[in-house]
Amino acid sequence: MKSYLQVSSEIGILAVGVALLMIAGEFDLSIGSLIGFSSMSITLLTIEANMPMPLASILTLVMTIFIGYCNGLTVVKSGLPSFIITLGSLFIIRGLTIAITKLITGRTQISGIDESSGYDFMHSIFSSNIKIADVDFPISIFWWLLFVFLGYFVLNQTQTGNWVFATGASKESSKLMGIPIRKIKVSLFMLTAFCAWFIAVIQVTTFNGADVLRGEQKEFISIIAAVIGGTLLTGGYGSIIGVMIGALIFGIVKQGIIFAGVDADWFQVFMGVMLVSAVLVNGRFKKKYIHEF
């Protein structure tokens, strides 16, 4: 059980940020490459530059959020679809990560971060296990629940949440009502970048190092989880609890297929079918059940 919960929790954390951004009407395709960038940056700063790992992580966090800020700013200033802008940043960030890592180390995978100072501390926060009734649960599950709780709280219980809905539902109406739609969007791009960094730290402490290709396809998987959870592709509606269930389904199916002895290739087929069905169902029930909370 905990293996699928671990898979779900990583997708689930990303999907909270991704869903909020989608509700505000934008996509971020760069988060997968941001996971690669963040995990490699933390590892290089720690191993090559001899920084304590917590310091390297914080420096990386600043850089990652800055990239998110640039994504957001480019989208709101240009008025172009975020789909295209962040597709560009996906390739730029992934390319830079690979090129710079090779330039410095000549390799694409680096391990051995567990001997660095501050590693144990980071490991205990991000990748340790918590024992409940003699079962070890990965701590990422609890982080996931915290992300879900905060995401739900902000979206449904605050003024900011109402502005996120409105921004995605109608840019023009929101503007006329004085909602700072640019600020909302840029902040949410920074949030998705933060989520990517968070997953990067979990992965670095889980796998004892980094690989330039970490996080590949995570941008699509988290969008799929969000859509399965009921988030509209057109923006304006979504539920954080639904997204949690989307991530849970993802984890159960991914691990379940392996345990059932079915070839893992079928997993992709299943995800594709789930995505298309979810989009069709969301559109159909949009009018009927929307915003009954």
């Binding site: 409105a166 109406s173 929101s174 009502m177 909602i179 949009k286 915003h291």
Partner: peptide
């Protein structure tokens, strides 16, 4: 905004 509910519309921007 049609897809937001009635009270969220009523207080939009001045919640």
């Amino acid at each position: 905004i049609p897809i937001m509910n009635i009270y969220r519309n009523f207080f939009l921007g001045q919640e």
